[in-house]
Design a protein around this nucleic acid. Structure first.
Lengths: 145, 145
DNA sequence: ATTCGTGCAAATGCTTTGCACCCAC
DNA sequence: GTGGGTGCAAAGCATTTGCACGAAT
């Protein structure tokens, strides 16, 4: 279902005279199989279980490659470190609800924001590329604690 | 006009058994006089002109103090470093248009987002504290280049 | 005297990079 | 055998912290 990602990955490799490798493929497989958001270290810890020889530098280099070819999106969620998610063109753009108590991240869609965005862009003569809406609060579970 | 900030600063100092000092006051003065967004290093460079003995650690410690007492808001704008702005209770919440070419940050207000936010919160049983909407694009000037 | 503020330098956390080596074609 | 991939360690960058000293009460 997400096979177009593999294609994009392979074409990017070819176009830039790079090579695929066992470790790159391992990281590609992990991220494209994983839903939601993950950090570089989480990718590292998971791939380490399968290939104990992998290094954190390879993880960071491959993340950069996947961001550059549009397979991964990078976010910060207000923190000073990167969170990554698959840029799935089959699912529409979504935004994030972030629980400041437990760190849980929930995705949601909001069409009205899409329209507003255009209105604001025209007002300031901006040519919009993307947006991020993050709503911070306390999730239902943490409200009970 | 922003004298309530000075009051809040002084009360916070007193309540937490801290002291005001020449250097803290200098940083407080700089940030409350400055419009828009600034980094820790920008505060440091500016205060350095007035007090060449000031250290970067004092700047960071004072920023933390001002964030804790609600005078400064911290943002990341997708980067892995902090940007600060005065939390002016007299002006309503605003969001940001960010030019990815020149880095310019423009503030705007959007009431519809305020309403949508509540709808989304109810849907996910979230108790909302705040939100950040960042729209990325190319500003009118950079479109001409 | 005590308490807090400060500069300096070291430490931190996350990320990138230089380099020598390894592998695949 | 050449070009790219990789681990390792070092460097980078923003930020925080330990410590000894300094200032104010």
């Amino acid at each position: 279902m997400r096979s177009y990602l593999k294609l994009r990955y392979q074409q990017f490799i070819k176009k830039n005279n790079l090579k695929s490798s066992k470790r790159r493929d391992l990281i590609f497989d992990f991220v494209t199989r994983t839903k939601g958001h993950f950090t570089a270290d989480e990718i590292y810890q998971e791939t380490l279980k399968i290939d104990p020889g992998i290094g954190i530098a390879t993880v960071y280099r491959t993340i950069r490659l996947l961001v550059n070819c549009g397979i991964l999106l990078e976010q910060t969620f207000g923190e000073k470190k990167g969170y990554f998610e698959v840029n799935d063109i089959n699912s529409k753009h979504h935004d994030h609800l972030i629980c400041t108590a437990c760190g849980k991240i929930i995705e949601f869609r909001c069409d009205i924001i899409e329209d507003d965005k255009q209105r604001i862009a025209e007002l300031h003569q901006f040519k919009i590329n993307s947006h991020k809406l993050e709503i911070y609060g306390i999730c239902s579970e943490c409200q009970l604690k």
